[in-house]
Design a protein around this nucleic acid. Sequence first.
DNA 1: CTGTTAGCGCCTTCAC
DNA 2: GTGAAGGCGCTAACAG
Lengths: 349, 349
Amino acid sequence: MKPATIRDVADLAKVSVASVSRVLTGAGVVAEPTRMKVLEAVEALSYVPHSGARSLSTNRTDTVGVILPDLFGEFFSELIRGMDLAARSAGLHLIVSSSHDDASDAAAAIRSMRGRVDGLIVLSPHLDAANLAANLAGRLPVLLMNGGMNEAGRPSIVVDNHGGARVAVEHLLSLGHRHIAHIGGPKGNLEARERQEGYVEAMRAAGGQPLIVDGDFTQASGHRAMQALLAEGVRPEAVFAGNDMMAVGALLAMQDAGVRVPDDVAVVGFDDVPIAALVRPALSTMRIEIAETGRRAVERLVTLIASTSDGGSESDIREVITPRLIVRASSVGDAAALSLAAPSTGDRS
Amino acid sequence: MKPATIRDVADLAKVSVASVSRVLTGAGVVAEPTRMKVLEAVEALSYVPHSGARSLSTNRTDTVGVILPDLFGEFFSELIRGMDLAARSAGLHLIVSSSHDDASDAAAAIRSMRGRVDGLIVLSPHLDAANLAANLAGRLPVLLMNGGMNEAGRPSIVVDNHGGARVAVEHLLSLGHRHIAHIGGPKGNLEARERQEGYVEAMRAAGGQPLIVDGDFTQASGHRAMQALLAEGVRPEAVFAGNDMMAVGALLAMQDAGVRVPDDVAVVGFDDVPIAALVRPALSTMRIEIAETGRRAVERLVTLIASTSDGGSESDIREVITPRLIVRASSVGDAAALSLAAPSTGDRS
DNA sequence: CTGTTAGCGCCTTCAC
DNA sequence: GTGAAGGCGCTAACAG
């Protein structure tokens, strides 16, 4: 009735549990006859090792945890896809935990990971970083991705949102636009703020007047923000959205209002989520290789875990991802020749 | 140096580990003074319970596993989002395992879940279902979502792909189209086959001639398939794609070729992934409440787990999801009034 | 090469 | 109300 244990196997095979363990883990040497007997018993009982028990002994779970604020939209799915890929090829399991609104919530999630994972990747714009991650996770290796460019000396991967935003705005400026509006992300979000600051700086540097409408990173909010602008009779020459989804929302709002993109208003987003290349006009954006970044995060966490158990120290603490400008039709009308970089994206069902 | 254990806490608080355990789990009764001492010690040592060890004792991991074939596209991310939501509200962790090409691969993944999860949700179109899931997972509760309408008497949630496809095709027929092409999903995929069969049947029933082009569920394949059709000089009146991503690909291919949708060719997809409402023309499709389905899957797994430990039996074995036709502009030109159902989708960064 | 014996960190009867 | 002791399933020395 109950699942077979290693002892059942040992009994049936007339050997000790140690031998069974040796056969199954590959550690140590076992005589061929013994090995056969064990394997037969395993087969007969359809025995499957209990990973939980194994973890308790070995002190390794072969699992990494990911703490996310949310799971909406393509950004996170792409990120997780990359992480899953890397985890898989490293023989690790991935445990995801999302929807952590406030810091204490995220903290609890981190806590509950103790004894469940070998390391953690934390994306938590709401979490004030290092402190929490450190105290709560015990001696658990943690890789931060919560967007703070000014983190403590803690392993992290951050996106240069500030610089990326400047590049985006400069692209629009170079197109001759001066009246450029910005649709900003959610208030508390650090990355949103950095992008907004980059926008403001670039505008100031060009002697332009910043014009900011609030959004919350969702497509719907971008749509609303754009509608609001148009309703007020404001007709900017260009719009720089805090992320792609809001840019898409703005795109649709303008379509509804009969405003032509990019002829009347040029649009640039941020992230380069798969959908950016699929809307029409295709969206110009600041590309973050999202899946690749996720892959990289796991990769770094793995070495972190290794170096932690080896007692070694980490070399490159902070890794900065520099977004790259992808010009598509939403900012340059005849960008057909330029936008060969539109990636093809898959789907399943 | 090493993380504190329950014993450290007990020592510091001058009580037994049993009392500490009682305080932390809430089980049993503890005198107030004792409880205080324990909590203080916990605080002082910043002790966090080791969930792995706890699991070994309680025989519960409070974790459910999800086996997926892939992680591409919005379908899976939506599904996972729904699952995460449900898991979270049930106090469960979610461990995802994807990219299992062949059956043996998926089997290994399932095996490795032993002792790590309390139950499993298996989506594996490649896996020949019940057998593997059953034998490999031991006495682990398993909820199947591998698309087999003809499963053994095993708890499952399936989509009525066959019926959904018929409805889609009948919608196109009702619009007066007779020459309807189908872009099919990947060969080995059961759901793709069911949809294709539904298409063929509906066509036959209407006295029409089926025309099938192969795809693989990716946007790129839909694009290629449509290009191929047009290149051959074939100009159907309508296209029913095996899923939304291929439909989007077809949409773009036609746009590139100067074919107008829906005036020249009407298009219907399947799934209603978020992007379906965002492309232009917005895509008519067969809606599966994807996230909701994921939520429901976890919900059922939870009751399954409960009933398994209670020794009770499951009532409704197979649950069928019936896709609903969503008419948007890609099939009916002036569908503006009809397509109020376009859901707004979020994104983060 | 193989068996015996401790734990891994925690929960949980069972006496006190 | 509290403590002592056994055990969850497995691995890892340590003897033989």
